[in-house]
Design a protein around this nucleic acid. Structure first.
Length: 374
RNA sequence: GGGUAGGUGGUCGAGUGGUUAAUGGCACCAGACUGUAAAUCUGGCGACGAGAGUCUACGUUGGUUCGAAUCCAACCCUGCCCA
């Protein structure tokens, strides 16, 4: 069968080693490195799909297996014609497997070799997700890229626990691959191993044997110090195949995204831009800006004077602060548009700078203005 | 004019003799947020002080008491009812 997800390497930055490429999917090409907005429940919170295309220029978005399984149910979405049709999005979709919920719903789940029993955060009911169930759900959703069902370990975790967990994740990955029945979806393996280099190496090697069309790094950016993050990122990325997409899960902040690209990552996703937008904070070229704060009460300038987004072209800090203060939905919407566009724009710049072999200089310039965050 | 209920910190509103600078909500101020249990959560919120602490406060004035937002008196003001 022809592989539905393929990676084409266009250029490698001679100075940083960063990759400029294209991922071909059944729902269009993705220019990489790419930032993928997260739309857990079949919606990037507060955004219409037209806004995601026209204002944010999103090439691909995420959705979540666990959440859509609980509500409205994957069968309903299949009945609707799949998630693309259900949510009116004709570009690529990547679905997370529910693996992150094994981590984030720590208190509400029980892990066994067979799978994970969750207490639904919605109604407390018992739910069970195994590698096979996760794939069944993701196939029903019809995403372009499915993720293997994994466990994302908390930070810190002991060597013993991390090792057991990683080995189980590897066995689960094999079961996911075995369970897949569709030919128009690509299943990515997830490298785990916490903050232990030998475990990362084992995980990467074992998963490579299974020949997935793409690989992800999971289990970092879970609250560790930045040095730890960078160390693990720089150690793990070179272990990933060069001819396939490399996806760093759950990142993030502008500085992390640039570092990821430099180390050779092609894809990143994060809830941060939309979440902090809802909480009143903007990402800007000069660092983060808490628009809620009283300092901006009479600031009639845009969120970011260097931004080309709809929000920055049309609205002021003072107005957005007022909307947030008055709890008007528009404030959250405008900030979400801005934050998402800020990151997709950042990645556009990253792609251009890679082509010019100039990403390292770009990073230095960016940090000068943005502030290097430890 | 008579009766009645009441006047508490930005606001609404608890508190009816001491451990009360005074519960709580809201407003306000700040912080956190990284494969979304998140339009959420945490903290602050009389003044001065880095702090220990000091001072000023529960309509006003006076009183009772070791001690008063809490009890008493007069006055001022507000709501409601009657004339």
């Amino acid at each position: 069968m022809t592989q539905p997800i393929t990676y084409e390497l266009l250029h490698v930055d001679k100075n940083s080693g960063a990759r400029r490429g294209v991922i071909h999917t059944p729902h269009g090409d993705i220019q990489t490195p790419v930032f993928m907005p997260v739309g857990t429940q079949g919606t990037v919170k507060a955004m219409t799909t037209d806004e995601l295309k026209d204002m944010v220029h999103a090439q691909i978005i995420l959705a979540n297996t666990y959440h859509l399984f609980l509500r409205p149910g994957h069968k309903l979405i299949k009945e609707a014609g799949g998630l693309h049709k259900f949510m009116n999005w004709d570009r690529a979709i990547l679905t997370d497997s529910g693996g992150f919920q094994v981590f984030s719903l720590g208190a509400l789940r029980k892990i066994t070799e067979e799978g994970v029993e969750f207490r639904s955060h919605l109604d407390g009911s018992k739910q069970f997700i195994s590698p096979e169930v996760s794939i069944e759900i993701q196939e029903a959703l019809g995403s372009d890229i499915m993720m293997a069902f994994d466990e994302c370990c908390p930070y810190p975790s002991s060597y013993e626990y991390t090792k057991k967990s990683m080995e189980r994740t590897t066995r689960w990955a094999a079961r996911c691959k075995e369970a897949q029945t569709t030919e128009n979806q690509g299943l990515f393996g997830i490298i785990q191993g916490g903050f232990f280099e030998d475990l990362r190496r084992i995980s990467a090697n074992d998963l490579k044997q299974m020949d997935f069309p793409g690989y992800a790094i999971g289990g970092i950016s879970v609250g560790e110090p930045k040095e730890e993050f960078l160390k693990m990122l720089r150690f793990t990325t070179p272990l990933m195949p060069e001819n396939k997409p490399r996806y760093l899960m759950g990142v993030g902040t502008p500085d992390y995204l640039i570092e990821a690209a430099i180390s050779g990552i092609d894809m990143c996703d994060c809830v941060l831009p939309t979440r902090i937008a809802r909480h009143g904070t903007a990402m800007t070229s000069h660092g983060k800006l808490v628009v809620r704060n009283a300092t901006y009460e009479r600031d009639f300038t845009p969120i970011d004077d260097e931004c080309d987004c709809y929000t920055c072209k049309n609205y002021t800090r003072a107005y957005i602060r007022h909307l947030l203060n008055a709890k008007e939905i528009l404030g959250v919407r405008l900030l979400s548009i801005h934050n998402l566009r800020f990151l997709t724009k950042l990645m556009e710049s990253v792609r251009i700078e890679i082509e010019r072999d100039n990403l390292l200089n770009f990073r230095d310039e960016f940090y000068k203005k943005y502030g290097y965050i430890k």
